[in-house]
C-alpha cells in the first residue's frame, strides 16, 4: 500500500503564502477548477482555496514564538469525509490514498465538510460542490511534465523548501525519513481520522559556550533542542459515542 502525503516543516515555514497562491494558480486553471472568487474587487472578497496559511503567536513577550501554519487536506487514512458522503462523490483512492471529490457526483450537501475535523474542505457556492486539496494528482502522475516537476505545486513553489511530498507508507521515502528524524507529528490524532499530512516541529539551535572557550579553542558546540513536545492521544476517550 502507499499513502502519498505532505510533510510540512514548521521549522522552515516563514508564512510567505507561496504554497497557497501557487496552489490556487495551478488548480483554478486546471481540471479541479475554477476556484471561484466572489466579489474579487469588492468589499468582502471570498474565494475557494485549497491551502491556507495561518499565523499564531505562542508564549508571552519577550519569550514569544511565531508559528506559521499552512493547512490543506490531510488525506486521512481513515477519512471521515469519505465515509459520510451520501453519493460517493468523496472517495479515497486505493492505490495512493489520495482523497478526492468527484464534482459530477457531488450534490453539495456539505456533510463531508462537517465530518472533517480540520476544516480542510471548501464549498464552492457557485458550482454548488465541495472542493479541496487534490494533492495535485494531476501533476504527480502527469507524464507531460518533466519528471522532476511531478510534484505538488505547493511543494515546487515553497521558497524555504519547507514542504516535502512523498509516500509515508514507504519507510525509505524522504517524507518518512523526515517524519522519523525530525519528530514529525499529526494533528488531532484523537479525532480518529488518522491524517497523512505530518508536521515537523520548530527546533531551536543553541550555541553553548563554556567559560574556558575564551582561552582554549574547542569547537563551539551547536546543539539542537526540540522545542515543541508532541501531545499524547488522550482526548476523546470520554466521549459518549453512540
Amino acid at each position: 500500500m502507499s499513502q502519498l502525503a505532505l510533510v510540512i516543516d514548521l521549522n522552515k515555514c516563514v508564512g510567505c503564502h507561496a504554497c497557497a497562491t501557487n496552489c490556487k494558480a495551478w488548480n483554478t486553471a486546471g481540471e479541479f477548477g475554477p476556484l471561484t472568487d466572489k466579489e474579487p474587487y469588492g468589499k468582502q472578497p471570498e474565494g475557494v482555496w485549497f491551502n491556507r496559511v495561518q499565523t499564531y503567536e505562542v508564549g508571552k513577550y519577550p519569550k514569544t514564538e511565531v508559528i506559521n501554519f499552512p493547512k490543506s487536506c490531510m488525506h486521512c487514512k481513515n477519512a471521515p469525509c469519505v465515509e459520510v458522503c451520501p453519493t460517493g462523490a468523496s472517495y479515497k483512492r486505493e492505490e495512493d490514498g489520495i482523497v478526492l471529490v468527484n464534482y459530477a457526483d457531488c450534490i453539495g450537501c456539505k456533510y463531508c465538510s462537517w465530518a472533517c475535523p480540520y476544516g480542510c474542505r471548501e464549498f464552492d457556492e457557485h458550482d454548488g460542490v465541495m472542493k479541496k486539496c487534490v494533492l495535485c494528482v494531476n501533476r504527480i502522475y502527469n507524464e507531460n511534465l518533466p519528471e522532476e516537476e511531478r510534484k505538488p505545486a505547493c511543494v515546487l513553489a515553497c521558497p524555504t523548501r519547507a514542504r516535502i511530498f512523498g509516500d509515508i507508507d514507504d519507510p525509505e521515502s524522504e517524507a518518512s525519513r523526515a517524519i522519523r528524524e525530525k519528530h514529525g507529528y499529526k494533528l488531532l490524532p484523537e479525532a480518529g481520522a488518522d491524517p497523512s499530512t505530518h508536521y515537523l516541529p520548530q527546533r531551536k539551535v543553541k550555541v553553548e559556550l563554556d567559560e574556558d572557550e575564551l582561552y582554549v579553542k574547542p569547537l563551539a558546540i551547536v546543539t539542537i533542542e526540540k522545542k515543541i513536545t508532541s501531545y499524547k492521544e488522550q482526548i476523546f476517550d470520554d466521549f459518549m459515542s453512540p
Binding site: 510567505c16 507561496a18 501557487n22 515546487l156 515553497c158 523548501r161
Partner: peptide
C-alpha cells in the same frame, strides 16, 4: 525553481 506568493499570482 521556487516562487513566492506574488509571483504565483501573476495571472
Amino acid at each position: 525553481g521556487v516562487i513566492c506568493a506574488k509571483g504565483s499570482s501573476g495571472i
